[in-house]
Amino acid sequence: MSQPTASVGRTVHYVSHGTPVRSDGSQAFPPACRAATVTEVDQEDPGRVGLVVLNPTGQFFHPLAAGGSVYADEAGMLAGSWHWPERV
């Protein structure tokens, strides 16, 4: 599935931002794929969605009103973006 058009209720992956890089170049938590559910879809740009992201430490709400999340394919893996789950 490479189409960026999602619908409410679909499960996607969200790429977290991770923690800031320390002065020694390390990160406590590097960017990672997290499970997310689409909560809303931008009618003018269906590749931009609102999400609820499921993190090990709790839920994170990323609504369209706060900017939402944009589609990036699995090769892009841009922090703050979403993509379809990889097939395993």
Rank of each mutant, 00 (worst) to 15 (best):
V12Y: 06
S69M: 04
Y14W: 15
P46Y: 12
P31M: 04
A72R: 14
F60M: 09
Q43E: 05
V70N: 00
S16N: 08
D45K: 04
T39G: 04
N55M: 12
C33V: 10
S23I: 11
T5G: 03
H13F: 10
V38I: 09
P85M: 11
M77H: 12
T39N: 02
V53I: 14
S69R: 00
M1P: 04
F61D: 13
G67D: 09
T39Y: 05
S2V: 12
D73L: 03
V41W: 02
P46K: 09
P46S: 05
T11I: 15
F61M: 09
P85K: 08
P85D: 05
S16A: 13
R34H: 10
E74R: 13
Y71C: 02
Y14G: 07
A72L: 05
A32P: 01
P56S: 04
Q3T: 13
H13S: 11
T57G: 04
E74G: 09
V38Q: 00
R34G: 00
L78Y: 11
F29C: 08
C33F: 07
V70Y: 11
P46E: 06
L54P: 00
T57E: 10
V70S: 06
L64M: 05
A28D: 10
F60E: 13
G80S: 03
D45V: 01
H17A: 12
L54N: 07
G47E: 11
H17E: 13
G25C: 04
V38S: 05
T19F: 06
Q27I: 01
Y14Q: 04
H17L: 15
T57D: 14
Q27P: 01
S7L: 02
H62F: 07
M77I: 03
P4N: 07
G18P: 09
A66S: 11
L78S: 10
P56M: 02
P31D: 06
Q59A: 10
P56T: 01
V38N: 00
G25M: 02
V52Q: 11
L54V: 08
F29M: 12
A75T: 14
V15Q: 10
H17Q: 12
H62A: 15
G25R: 01
V88P: 09
Y14H: 15
D73I: 05
D45A: 08
A66I: 00
A66L: 12
G50M: 07
P63D: 12
R34W: 06
M1F: 08
A66P: 01
Y14D: 08
P20R: 13
V41S: 00
E44M: 07
F29V: 14
E44K: 10
A66G: 03
